[in-house]
Design a protein around this nucleic acid. Structure first.
Lengths: 216, 216
DNA sequence: ACCTGAACACCGTTCAAGT
DNA sequence: ACCTGAACACCGTTCAAGT
């Protein structure tokens, strides 16, 4: 994702050779520092050491470049999902919880990317194939983890897509509230967040209602 | 706040008299049609029939105007919350569910506003007092409804702020996925959405886990 | 007080032109 | 093939000037 080995110390070559990748790296860095609203294609080009029209050789327009960044984000979640399944083969509940944390940590580390994934900047309807497929694969890998739990008799027999939707709604809603600073002070402390995450996972699994013999 | 008594119907007065309000109306309309990214202050001014520098008499900058729109959104949720409490005085569970629907319907009707409320365009930290207070009141009114349920012995005794956080995470996460088109086709049908909302409310209250004697 | 036009430093995108 | 500078139609914001 962010592995540019070529810090070309050489005197700048005619043909960059890796410009597309360099542009993506520069764009992600700028995105992280200033947010989508302030992300300027011209500035990205300058950061990559290239004229402000060069990016158009590799991306149809600004939106196309942003979609490429978002697709990378979805692919990251898909990869993590696979890793988790392999790491905890017989523990579907653990799989779901872990995937939730990965999503949440991604939000903490790269909030701008996560805003891209589920925000209003990109609409999946008008998006290119690369982004649509990446998003769809991320969803499917979550659904697979939910189905693992259902096969183990763990979850309700509700449609797996709906259970997955509930999980992603909770996780993403929480992540979003945290990274956009919507959690009011008494709860927003650094260390509190881990505790909050656990509490929400518990509610997702067991619900808000008081259960008989359970007054937690 | 938006109570300018002088509705001078006279042929366009020198002094508009209600320009601030007119600008907000024009801005909301433009916002709804084109999204924040495309919202131009110059265009807002033109829509209000005024020069492109006139808005600066009423708003410090573009962000200030956007914050005013967002504050109005939070206040709407706060008002709805009060109404619901009065309408269903002894039914705290109903109160919570209804508030969730109001939030969701607001998202369907004014997606751009809801993106403003919880998106990355505005950060509450740097926001002006008006927006911060409006946001805080909306949260508090949700917490009050959660506490109503706790007093009735309905919910777990977890910190009410945390229960409220779980509820808003679920509701907002779901709303966001719907309005940003992230719900994949098999689930995204028009009529399905009401059904989905009910399913998620059930999961929020009862959890994902299969309960003894309950195989729903 | 309230509004204006000109001006400044930016944008995204297109295009003929260079190598 | 890949990159460039000039050009176009936009931005947000500032400011001296008008009434």
């Amino acid at each position: 994702m962010i592995n540019s080995g070529n810090k070309s110390i050489k005197k700048k070559a005619y043909h960059h050779g890796d410009l597309r990748h360099s542009l993506l790296v520069a764009a992600e860095s700028l995105l992280a520092r200033k947010g989508v609203a302030e992300l300027s294609l011209r500035e990205v080009a300058k950061a990559a050491g290239v004229s402000h029209t060069a990016p158009y050789r590799h991306f149809r327009d600004k939106r196309d470049l942003i979609e490429a960044l978002a697709a990378e984000g979805f692919r990251y979640l898909t990869r993590e999902s696979w890793k988790i399944e392999q790491k905890y083969p017989r523990q579907p509940e653990k799989q779901l919880i872990e995937l939730g944390w990965r999503h949440f940590y991604l939000a903490l580390e790269k909030p701008a990317i996560v805003h891209l994934l589920f925000g209003d900047v990109l609409s999946l309807k008008n998006a290119g194939k690369e982004l649509r497929e990446a998003a769809s694969e991320a969803i499917e890998s979550l659904i697979r983890i939910v189905k693992n739990g259902q096969k183990a008799g763990l979850y309700k027999k509700t449609n797996a897509r709906i259970l997955a939707l509930a999980a992603i709604s909770m996780v993403h809603g929480f992540s979003l509230l945290v990274i956009s600073g919507r959690i009011p002070p008494p709860l927003s402390g650094r260390l509190q967040v881990k505790y909050l995450g656990k509490a929400l996972a518990d509610i997702l699994l067991h619900g808000m209602l008081k259960r008989h013999g359970n007054t937690r």
